[in-house]
């Protein structure tokens, strides 16, 4: 893949990087730094991209590996998420979507990865392949995470 092809592919899949950085990092400066690092790591690892696989799958893999192995200056303060208004960062989204984003951000790193990949339409086999978990375990974890998220999104139904 040439540099211009790579740049076009990254632009076409910008939402992936945007979402990964948004879910794992709490401030805009850290997110910008991480975006730069993911672009760099993706370019350095481009030899590993096989044309037969989806670029999005490969980019997710690189993005997650980069963000998990990076020394994050500060972890997301879970307690403060409840009070935070995300809508100014993503003005077009509804309250429910805002609550979902908030609930996902509060999950552990691994749970966050599993549910994000699931919501991005990756099947359990692909998630297992990307994370190193077994397919069965992905299924078990997904079930638990979804229950947890539903409770957070509709607390009145669970009382």
């Amino acid at each position: 893949m040439t540099e211009s092809e790579f740049i076009k592919a990254i632009q076409a899949h910008a939402a992936i990087i945007h979402k990964i950085t948004y879910l794992y990092l709490d401030n805009a400066e850290d997110r910008r730094d991480m975006m730069q690092e993911i672009h760099l790591q993706a370019w350095k690892s481009i030899h590993g991209f096989r044309g037969d696989a989806r670029f999005s799958t490969w980019l997710y893999r690189i993005g997650l590996n980069t963000i998990f192995s990076y020394r994050r200056k500060k972890r997301i303060e879970v307690d403060s998420l409840e009070d935070r208004d995300f809508s100014f960062e993503s003005p077009a989204i509804s309250d429910e979507a805002d609550r979902l984003m908030r609930a996902i951000k509060a999950l552990s790193d691994v749970d966050k990865t599993i549910i994000t990949l699931h919501l991005e339409d990756f099947d359990n086999g692909e998630i297992a392949e990307m994370t190193g978990l077994t397919k069965n375990n992905v299924g078990v974890k997904l079930h638990r995470i979804k229950d947890n998220l539903k409770k957070k999104l509709n607390p009145e139904n669970n009382e």
Partner: peptide, 14 residues
Amino acid sequence: ELKELWGEIRSDAD
């Protein structure tokens, strides 16, 4: 329901 809500975030991020 979760996927629909996620779709909203996705299109916004796009």
